[in-house]
Amino acid sequence: MSEFQCPSCSGVLKFKSTSSVTMTCPFCTSTVVRHDLNLELLGKVSGTIEDLSPLQVGTSGYVGSKAFQIVGRATYSWDDGVWNEWRITYLDGSNGWLAEAQGEFTIFDDAISSADKGFLNNLKVNAEIDFNGSKFMVTDIKKAECIGVEGELPFVGTKGRKGTFYDLSGFKNEFLTFEETEAGSNLFRGQKIDFDNLKLSTLRYIDGWD
């Protein structure tokens, strides 16, 4: 079972995604790391970022006919903006990310592990590349830092994590994000999805805003 007691406040912590390695205790905001049978306390990291996102840990929705729930969140900041990466776990046990940048939502699958990433060397803005038969263009290369975490995440030490993020857009609705961080490099593939099409429930209410 993936149910634990918070080593700090004894609150019941249940990992919803089997891929999760860390969790922020919702009761005392301590960060814990999951080992086989016990939890390691990393200490309190007041990481939650206050923003206007309509999403929250616990929000559920659909990608097509696949139901998902948000289990965690990492917020990144760079010189010219802020974005959220919501960790989602599907009802069938698979996982992914819902990226939220300036109110636009992109659904990413889990990192592509087997991909030959050779083409990602020396990427420059406006460079065009081929990937799996599709053309992509590099739209953005930014150095960003994780400024806050919440809920469950599949890696340790997320807050303060620095990295270089490459955003690539296709000429149809498909996107690639390549991130190089201290923990390694990962390639993600995704597509944009309308807020309405996500059919979200348990959204976050904020007074004074629709």
């Binding site: 249940k14 923003d51 840990v57 209410y205 904020i206």
Partner: peptide
């Protein structure tokens, strides 16, 4: 799924937690 009930409880808790701090603005 076995954990569906407990997670829906937790969902409610999260919603309450957030509902407490209603106004979001920064001076």
């Amino acid at each position: 799924m076995a954990g569906t009930e407990t997670s829906s409880k937790k969902v409610k808790k999260y919603s309450l937690l957030n509902a407490e701090k209603k106004k979001v603005s920064k001076s």
